[in-house]
Design a binder for these strands. Structure first.
Lengths: 336, 336
DNA sequence: GTGAAAGCGCTAACAC
DNA sequence: GTGTTAGCGCTTTCAC
């Protein structure tokens, strides 16, 4: 806060009107003649006056500031999401205080507290773990929140998510259409609802088509290239009678790819591989991963709209928005 | 802003003291007995009271809010940087309003204006282009700013950057130590000071060791995989008597890699390749790009420290901080 | 050590 | 249509 800035009174004096008129001109409210509004605005322009939004926020008890808690924006998934959220929120007249929880629930709680103190009008959060939700619980009564992604069953808060079942369904159907009769699913995390839905989509297709299936579980708390690699390495160490792998996430797929490369398994020659999320890594040369896309900008827009909606007209209950995923065909899947 | 929150007066009433005492207890200022401070703090705890930082900001005329303008956090370079900045700033008691300029100068100006109105205490910006600086000019007198990265000569503002000359110097020396006697440099952008320094580091090594060199220029306004690809494709279409390529940026290197793959040029068998930045893409399986690392967290910490420094004790002149890059050996360079 | 009161810069009744 | 004034919730002199 620069300090030596002009105030509304200074402008009022310069314009020869009252500060109320200046305020009216600035906020675009009625009860002021077009003539004086023009006049005041001109003076503001000339003096390079920018209204102090802190004072305004205090007066109207709204900051038009949104809190955004993500795991970590250096993760490509979060980066893509956060970028879209910021852009869309700004488009709607809101700015973002961005916070990285570094995937720690205790940080999430601290951050909610902090954002509350900052008087943000609402919060968008991508929870780290199941425990995040119990922490969230405390804040829901105090401030509008929307959750992106849903890792628990029966989430009774505002949230937006992709249709995870549909995503793996789409992908598995694609593999089947390519002639695959045996598809393994790698990286399933049983505590995650997202993962359960994804596994169900895959399994449903396998059942319908009588495709041989296999669910390889990831017992760790998160998906990563390293986990995908470890899981696949184990898998490839014995006989592996599958022609395709559906990875629970893109990062998992990347790990699988690495293990396959090391094991001399050609992709897509010997093995088709498909991921989920369409993070920016997928489109890279040499990677070129076929995957299921999360519509980041639609997710961002829906989340922001939902949040602003509940900010501007608070209501009991909650909303849920499920967006369509789509298949992105690249180079890692081939006909058998 | 929730609205129905408790105020300092409510706490004062509950604690049986004046609001001044509550304020003193909360801000940790002196002039209050340890006894009443404890008492007040206990009440605050019990009532889950969080001070309204908007009101505080207005009173003290400081927001402890930093503006951060980046090209776009969905870009891995920006994402890594922004994440570190946020983390470090928070550690120092500041929060971040993050804005993506989408690499447009006119947006940068609008965002500076917006952040000024938001009363942020200072701004960290990674300018998009040379024109950004002339836009910045207007704001320097009004608010503390630090620039990350330096794309113009004689930048007379606070800024922190990596030692670009040193970076390519290190990389080129490494290639020479591997026995390379002909190294091409791809993706040079002559209008960028950063690029000029990088090219100089490379050329200096080539001259000292009598290494055959070649500077391939990128005439576009930015580096990208696509540009690297186009440049390299052109390069590989004729005779190419070089055993190594130094790419001006990692993204450029990725494009070169793609072109080499298509041309049947083995990396590092036929051609060694080195990039610059160490964005997250480099460590991916199949990519495994040897590169020069920008110390993201050191850059972030320096920038934040520099900014907070000038916020808390404003002074004429400007500071500059040049950080050490380092060589990250991965799989794309080999002895000839 | 504690409390009363005057702002911080703005908005929004309420008069005129 | 315009101006006056009382807050918004906090900090900070200044008395006591």
């Amino acid at each position: 806060m620069a300090g030596k800035n002009l105030t509304i009174r200074d402008i009022a004096k310069l314009a020869g009107v009252s500060n109320a008129s200046v305020s009216r001109a600035l906020t675009g409210s009625c009860g002021i003649s077009e003539k004086t509004r023009k006049h005041v605005l001109k003076i503001c322009e000339r003096e390079r006056y920018t209204a102090n939004s802190i004072a305004r926020s205090l007066a109207v008890r709204k900051t038009r500031l949104l809190g955004c808690i993500v795991g970590s924006v250096d993760n490509p998934y979060m980066g893509q999401l956060a970028c879209q959220i910021e852009l869309y929120a700004r488009h709607k007249g809101y700015n973002l205080i961005l916070c990285n929880s570094t995937n720690k629930e205790e940080h999430e709680v601290q951050l909610m507290e902090l954002l509350l103190g900052r008087q943000v009008d609402g919060i968008i959060i991508t929870p780290t773990s199941r425990a995040s939700y119990t922490a969230l619980e405390h804040f829901l009564a105090r401030i509008p929140v929307v959750v992106i992604g849903n890792t628990i069953t029966n989430l009774r808060y505002n949230h937006v998510t992709v249709d995870n079942f549909k995503g793996t369904f789409l992908g598995a159907e694609y593999l089947v259409s390519l002639g695959h009769r045996s598809i393994a699913y790698v990286g399933y995390r049983s505590e995650s609802y997202t993962h359960r839905l994804r596994a169900q989509g895959y399994q449903s297709v396998c059942e319908t088509h009588g495709v041989k299936s296999l669910l390889i579980e990831n017992k760790e708390a998160a998906s990563s290239i390293e986990r995908g690699y470890a899981l696949a390495k184990e898998l490839f160490s014995g006989p592996f009678p599958y022609t395709a792998i559906f990875a629970a996430t893109d990062t998992t797929a990347l790990g699988v790819m690495q293990a396959a490369d090391e094991a001399g398994i050609a992709i897509p020659g010997d093995l088709s591989l498909i991921g989920f999320d369409n993070i920016s890594y997928c489109a890279l040369p040499r990677i070129n991963l076929t995957t299921i896309e999360q519509p980041f900008s639609a997710i961002a827009a829906s989340a922001v709209n939902m949040l602003i909606g509940t900010i501007e007209s608070p209501q009991e209950g909650y909303a849920q928005m499920v967006l369509e995923p789509s298949l992105i065909k690249r180079g890692t899947c081939a006909a058998v």
